[in-house]
């Protein structure tokens, strides 16, 4: 499935390893059940990622967060929003690696995904065909600022108001 981040579509460096297959390669994406063994047996340079359902709970992932570089969370349907909260929890727990949404998400959700801590999405071919890169880019540009503080990189509307007040206070 095509992979996309804020810069556009790009090649996927991650190699999905099915249960029972040898986890070889520079960057391997494995299931939660395989994860402890793969981490234990990895070479120094190898990057390890885990692919989980959106029903997984943070405590199941917490022990590994310092040792992995990618968490890929499945979206069974674009309207199933559990992964938004899970991604937030990962970020609040201090996870610094990449978070990926896997499944039929749509361009219109891109800002919400990024704001909740996702870096990239891996969408089915049919969606990539209907919604080319330009649509994802313009979706990202469709929000100047949002009301919620702490979501996304930019200042929230509340923070902008505060800055404006401070500016006015300084000027007067």
């Amino acid at each position: 499935m095509p992979l996309l981040d804020a810069a556009g579509f790009r090649a996927d460096p991650w190699h999905r390893v099915a249960a029972g297959e040898p986890a070889t390669g520079e960057a391997v994406l494995v299931g939660l059940a395989e994860l402890p063994a793969v981490i234990a047996g990895r070479s120094n340079a190898q990057r390890v990622g885990v692919e989980v359902a959106n029903t997984v709970r943070l405590p199941e992932l917490s022990p590994f967060l310092g040792q992995i570089d990618l968490v890929a969370i499945a979206f069974p349907a674009f309207a199933d929003g559990r992964a938004f909260s899970l991604a937030r929890q990962l970020r609040e727990a201090g996870f610094k690696g990449a978070v990926r949404a896997v499944g039929p998400v749509i361009a219109d959700q891109f800002t919400h995904l990024v704001a909740c801590g996702f870096d990239e999405v891996e969408v089915p071919d049919a969606i990539a065909a209907r919604q080319p890169e330009a649509q994802w880019r313009s979706a990202l540009a469709s929000y100047g600022a949002t009301y919620q503080t702490g979501y996304g990189a930019g200042a929230s509307i509340l923070e902008r108001r505060r800055a404006l007040r401070a500016g006015q206070g300084a000027a007067s």
Binding site: G81, F84, Q109, T111, H112, T146, Y147, Q148, L158
Partner: peptide, 13 residues
Amino acid sequence: RQWSTMHPEFDYL
């Protein structure tokens, strides 16, 4: 109203 408007985490409940 402001906090809940297009809340990124809670738009697909």
